[in-house]
Amino acid sequence: MATDIKNLGVKTKWQDLTEGMIIVGSGTSKDFNTGEWSSVKPEFIEEKCKQCLLCVPVCPDSCIPVKDMKRGAFDLEHCKGCGICVKSCPFGAITMEGVK
């Protein structure tokens, strides 16, 4: 059965840790909010976007979801504001403070 990581916090007793410290399941890091690391975030100007998807592979944080061949809004709960995507967009559809 998949590990319920909600039961695994820094106050968890030794009896309740997973055996061998394994985690059954995947992608549990989504519960960890790295979006708090930065206050500066990219902005997506949808009307300028031509859905070329060139911004998708450059994101180190998998914060540009793609569905049915189209990108969606930024996942700002996890985006660390590195600004790489801003420079990858040929159409000026992504802007961010401090990045030209």
Binding site: V10, K13, W14, Q15, L17, M21, I22, V24, G25, S26
Partner: peptide, 24 residues
């Protein structure tokens, strides 16, 4: 049926409990 991850980094808040768990 299920993926699994083994060999994590454990911060101080977990390490000692992990060792105690192992001792069991």
């Amino acid at each position: 049926k299920e993926t699994m991850a083994v060999g994590p980094y454990a911060i101080t808040d977990y390490y000692m409990e992990a060792k105690r768990n192992q001792a069991e």
